[in-house]
Computed example of a mutant assay.
Amino acid sequence: MSSGRTEIAVVGSVNVDLVATVARLPLPGQTVPALGFEQFSGGKGANQAVAAARLGRRVALVGLTGSDAEGAAVRAALARGGVDVTHLGVADGAPTGRAIVLVADDAENSIVVVAGSNALLGEVDVAAASEELRDAAVVLAQLEVPVDAVLAAARGAAGTFVLNPAPARELPDELLDLVDVLVLNEVEYEVVIGRPLPADLADLPAHLAQSGLRCAVVVTLGGRGAALCQDGAVVVETPPHVPVVDTTGAGDTFIGALADALSRHEGPPAALRWAVHAASLSVGALGATTGMPTSDQVGASLARSSTDDGVPR
């Protein structure tokens, strides 16, 4: 990460990911043998920060680890990844967060998150990073930390505030009113918006208008890409065809890349396309951050896509 002011401030979680590969995800009550096991740094906040930093942005992460060895390890990994950890504090008496991840042969996954120190992040921790929030072109938050901390981040953001409401829950109107870009998947859409995603994406503007949301909304659609709804118009971006090893970090890569593009003042449709290509590249390696691409790699993917479909972009 180059020196200079923060371009993207991320307020969010930091975990240790415990990843077991299995032939297939177990059914309820079923025990299956692991084919392999690895440990990675993770957490939605940390993953999204790494994704944006790998794309060349100056990123500051606001969060908490435990005072355990795992906390020191993830802090070191984030710093190696180019993330400013000045405001990554240490919570005494709580372990660093954990995520237990099962990845099947078909690249589907199941994840259980243990909040640990992430549950203690508060308004005071966010206030300590007020300069970074004011400087940043984009402030990004998720819901693996308390809503009060997220609301403090939204209030302190001087630039674009991007919210990824995951894990999904109903949100206070005060928070939603401060959101500039809401990024969520189909399951999260139903929880936050209060109704299922319409089968015809052309119905999104009417659907969202009824909910009272005034922000831009981006819906990630897994292997089908993503859709943007803004000012009554819908843009759908489909991904390139790529080999899939592990989809665990694809959503976080998408959001980090979207923040990257928005911080460079790209328009939302261009940012959507950039993010879809970044996410598609990320699924080629095991682990949430291992396959996250560089800016050159995303640019090459965009160039290949333009050549393949014959449409100038």
Rank of each mutant, 00 (worst) to 15 (best):
P167T: 10
P167W: 10
E170T: 15
L171I: 03
D173P: 09
E174N: 00
E174Y: 00
L176R: 06
L176K: 01
D177H: 13
D177T: 14
V179G: 05
V179C: 07
D180N: 12
D180V: 03
D180T: 04
L182P: 11
V183W: 12
N185F: 04
E186T: 12
E186P: 03
E188K: 00
E190M: 04
V191P: 07
V192T: 08
G194W: 05
P196H: 01
L197H: 05
L197I: 07
A199D: 15
D200E: 14
L201G: 09
A202V: 08
A202Y: 00
P205T: 03
P205V: 04
A209Y: 00
A209E: 15
S211N: 02
S211L: 01
S211G: 04
L213S: 08
L213R: 10
R214F: 02
C215F: 01
C215K: 01
A216V: 05
A216S: 14
V217M: 03
V218A: 10
V219D: 03
T220M: 06
L221V: 05
A226N: 05
A227V: 11
L228C: 09
C229M: 12
G232D: 09
G232W: 10
A233K: 13
V234Y: 07
V235Q: 13
V236P: 00
E237N: 01
T238F: 01
P243G: 07
V244I: 14
V245H: 08
D246K: 09
D246L: 08
D246P: 07
D246M: 07
A250E: 09
G251M: 09
D252L: 13
D252C: 12
T253H: 07
G256K: 08
A257N: 10
L258G: 12
L258S: 12
A259V: 06
A259T: 07
D260Y: 14
A261Q: 04
R264T: 13
R264N: 13
H265Y: 14
E266R: 15
G267I: 06
P268C: 03
P269E: 06
P269N: 03
P269I: 08
A271N: 02
A271Y: 01
R273M: 00
W274D: 04
W274E: 08
A275I: 11
H277T: 01
H277Y: 06
H277F: 11
A279N: 03
S280T: 02
L281N: 03
S282I: 06
G284I: 07
L286G: 00
L286A: 04
G287N: 05
T290K: 01
G291S: 11
M292L: 12
P293H: 07
S295Q: 15
S295L: 15
D296I: 10
D296F: 09
D296K: 13
Q297D: 14
